[in-house]
């Protein structure tokens, strides 16, 4: 039995979606405007501001840094997060319950507090190079996604299949790579995507860890905005939206978008 949704509710929801999408369309419009200050609707159209993004060397440089951090930080986090998630699912009785809560601390502790604390301990206390401390910071903030999302897949994995492989003489490590990992592929992809997007958009931790010469794209955008208020920022924003589109296409292809509401 299906009840009809009240038209007023539908109208309300339509307004909400206009509110959600409208600002993004305004950014696209502003990025094409030929006036030298940010405005919408655009008066004349130009791609000049997109050229400008690449003419200001800090933008391509920080894009590359952000990409390296998102891929490297997530990969690092996966390398240590997957074994932890595996241990939690496989050896449930041998490990204390609270371990699961430790892995989500990076989400629970306010990110800005984490950034500040990392700056004091790593950048100042240990005198660590900027890129290394950024990499650790990013690996840390994406760890909850790696452990929890992969862990959810592992919890529905039937470990007797792995036992079967081992009892038939397959070495433990080989059973893990050829039996367990392929079965939790969806979880790893999902975790990787969430981690990647978290890392590439991060501000609160990066702002404390970036330093002379090394910055990430969101931090560079903030810095640029403090000095100039021109459509270059709108153009970078549109380029970042392309990243979102690409990520969503990957999600759609591999998992289906409904996984995001679960």
């Amino acid at each position: 039995m299906k009840t009809k949704t009240h038209p007023l509710l539908i109208a309300f929801a339509a307004l909400v979606f206009a509110f959600l999408i409208g600002p993004l369309i305004i950014i696209i419009g502003a990025s094409l405007s030929d006036s030298s200050f940010l405005t919408f609707p655009p008066r004349g159209l130009t791609l000049h501001w997109y050229e400008n993004v690449f003419a200001i060397s800090a933008f391509p440089r920080t894009m590359w840094t952000s990409f390296q951090l998102a891929v490297g930080g997530t990969a690092l986090s996966m390398c240590i997060g997957i074994p932890a998630a595996y241990a939690m699912a496989r050896y449930r009785i041998q490990l204390p319950r609270f371990l699961g809560n430790i892995y989500v601390l990076p989400i629970l502790i306010p990110e800005i507090v984490l950034g500040f604390s990392l700056m004091k301990s790593m950048a100042i206390g240990m005198d660590m190079p900027i890129m290394a401390s950024l990499m650790i910071g990013h690996a840390l903030i994406v760890l909850p996604y790696c452990v929890r999302v992969v862990g959810a897949s592992l919890n529905s994995f039937d470990f007797s299949i792995e036992e079967a492989a081992i009892s038939l003489g397959c070495p433990r490590w080989k059973a893990f790579f050829t039996v367990v990992l392929p079965n939790v592929r969806a979880g790893i992809i999902a975790g990787f995507i969430l981690a990647f997007i978290t890392s590439i958009n991060d501000v609160s931790v990066s702002i404390f860890l970036t330093g002379p010469g090394v910055s990430t794209l969101p931090i560079q955008i903030l810095a640029h905005m403090e000095q100039f208020f021109d459509p270059t920022i709108a153009s970078v924003s549109v380029l970042l939206m392309f990243v979102t589109v690409a990520v969503m296409a990957v999600v759609e292809r591999t998992l289906g978008l409904t996984f995001l509401t679960k």
């Binding site: 600002p23 305004i26 950014i27 590439i200 208020f229 970042l240």
Partner: peptide, 25 residues
């Protein structure tokens, strides 16, 4: 599924970009 895409898209777009939109508005 279209509506879910319309909600996911802004969610995955960075905080800086989405805040910046309101500077323009």
């Amino acid at each position: 599924s279209l509506l879910i895409i319309a909600a996911v898209f802004p969610l995955l777009t960075g905080v800086v970009v989405r805040s910046f939109a309101w500077l323009v508005i």
